[in-house]
């Protein structure tokens, strides 16, 4: 009774701290929205001021996400990156397959069937070559590096398509989280290098007309890589490239866990 303050004060401070942290943890998804928004704001500023807009803000944000994921993984020893840190557990829901697939399906909304018809044969050819070639090459490289089972080869090969096709394919065929992370990493290398290299080589590959942009979008497939690369080359080409690129992910998600996986499984056995 004599020292109510000195006794209750420390526990009161802890209780207050807990209650405040509780606001974040019990509103996990909302915290994730705020955290990702803040991260993207910072990354867009970095893109604008430190890279002169050469590297797309979203690519920097994704790279930063992977770095944070690494830090979270080292700090907690868990398998879900930053989402294993209680404060950021909502990232697991926001970036989980349910909302991710929902948002990806929504991007198909931008595709106009009439425009697609005009894309003609080369756009379609580019889409198939653009999915099968990176898949085969990425899968072969994975095999050369010792990933010899069908699930690993397929997941890494699909990651060489885009960082969406990789995880979607991987989770469909039961790949482990580290394989999925690897497929994201390879897709990210692709996306970032497309953004950086496109303006430099545009002239030498005749990337100066909408038809070539359609082919380019279908070949590269990475929407942010294509949009960023074309914007840095000639902003008028962006919609053409983005249009075929929009189809790339859907087609890749369709082919990856089905036809391509079955081909790989037939080749490697198992």
């Amino acid at each position: 009774m004599r020292w109510p303050w000195t006794i209750s004060k420390p526990s009161g401070v802890i209780a207050m701290h807990e209650r405040l942290v509780d606001v974040f943890t019990s509103n996990g998804l909302i915290t994730a929205f705020a955290a990702v928004g803040l991260l993207m704001l910072v990354c867009n500023l970095v893109s604008k001021h430190l890279t002169g807009g050469r590297i797309h803000g979203s690519a920097i944000a994704i790279a930063a996400g992977l770095v944070l994921s690494y830090i979270g993984g080292v700090a907690t020893g868990g398998e879900d990156g930053l989402a294993d840190v209680a404060l950021f557990s909502g990232l697991g829901l926001m970036g989980g397959s349910m909302l991710r697939d929902f948002a990806i399906v929504a991007t198909a909304f931008g595709v106009d069937v009439e425009e697609l018809r005009k894309a003609g044969l080369n756009g379609v050819v580019a889409l198939f070559v653009g999915i099968i070639m990176p898949f085969a090459l990425g899968g072969a490289i994975a095999y050369a590096f010792g990933y010899t089972d069908p699930v690993s080869v397929t997941t890494i090969g699909a990651g060489a398509a885009t960082y969406i096709v990789g995880p979607v394919t991987g989770s469909a065929i039961g790949a482990s989280s580290d394989l999925i992370a690897l497929s994201i990493a390879i897709g990210l290398v692709k996306s970032i290098s497309v953004m950086i290299i496109t303006p430099a080589v545009a002239r030498s590959i005749s990337l100066n007309n909408p038809s070539a942009a359609l082919v380019f979008g279908g070949m590269m497939g990475t929407t942010s890589g294509v949009a960023g690369g074309l914007a840095a080359t000639d902003a008028r080409l962006v919609p053409y490239g983005a249009m075929t690129a929009t189809f790339y992910t859907g087609l890749g998600c369709l082919l990856g866990p089905s036809v391509l996986y079955l081909v790989v499984r037939a080749l490697l056995g198992g």
Partner: peptide, 28 residues
């Protein structure tokens, strides 16, 4: 779509991927 992909990137097992070595860089 992009923010969700960022959140997805932030909740992956990157530590596991890094031990996979230079596959990502060479392949990409």
């Amino acid at each position: 779509y992009i923010p969700i992909v960022v959140a997805m990137a932030a909740s992956q097992n990157v530590v596991g991927a890094v031990t996979g070595g230079p596959v990502a860089l060479v392949g990409g």
